[in-house]
Design a protein around this nucleic acid. Structure first.
Length: 152
DNA sequence: GCCAACGTTGGC
DNA sequence: GCCAACGTTGGC
């Protein structure tokens, strides 16, 4: 089993929305590196740190898990969607995404500032300078520390 | 709202 | 294939 961090803007889709929905397809990723993690490495059962970006404060809000392997992202075919991609066809989809399922919300949101304060987390991708990747791998040791910091 | 860092596009 | 211009991300 592997561990991941996935970013979402809570104004658009928050951990609370996922708690209500139970599951969601992670549509809208339009970055090849992020897509490749989803298509090539993510497996059902992998655990995900749900990260709130562009938030006050930004940070890890809870845990989700991969509940279905990557399938074509429907939003690429939807002309009305901001994620529409004219180059994509049903025969040759450009974008795929996994389905994730709510696991738990942290008792305490672990803010980006807290992550930076914790020296043992310094290697996390999300803390690297200029890191914008919205789907990224996480070490098990870092995942375990995050659970403790989150109070679960 | 600003802007640094990064990814993508397109001219050559 | 290089790289300047442009668009986006995301913290602050």
């Amino acid at each position: 089993m592997k561990y991941w961090l996935m970013k979402s803007e809570p104004d658009v889709y928050s951990i609370d929305t996922l708690a209500k929905d139970k599951t969601t397809w992670w549509e809208g990723v339009r970055n090849y590196q992020a897509r490749n993690f989803m298509t090539q490495q993510m497996e059902e059962g992998d655990l995900v740190l749900f990260y709130h970006s562009n938030a006050e404060p930004p940070g890890v809000a809870g845990i989700a898990k991969v509940s279905h392997k990557a399938e074509p992202d429907k939003s690429q075919f939807d002309k009305k969607s901001e994620y529409y991609d004219a180059k994509a066809t049903k025969e040759k989809p450009q974008w795929l995404c996994v389905q994730v399922e709510f696991v738990q919300k942290f008792k305490h949101l672990v803010s980006l500032a807290e992550l930076r304060e914790n020296k043992s987390l310094a290697d996390m991708v999300v803390l690297q300078k200029g890191s914008r990747l919205s789907v990224q791998p996480v070490d098990k040791k870092h995942f375990d520390i995050l659970k403790k910091l989150g109070g679960v």
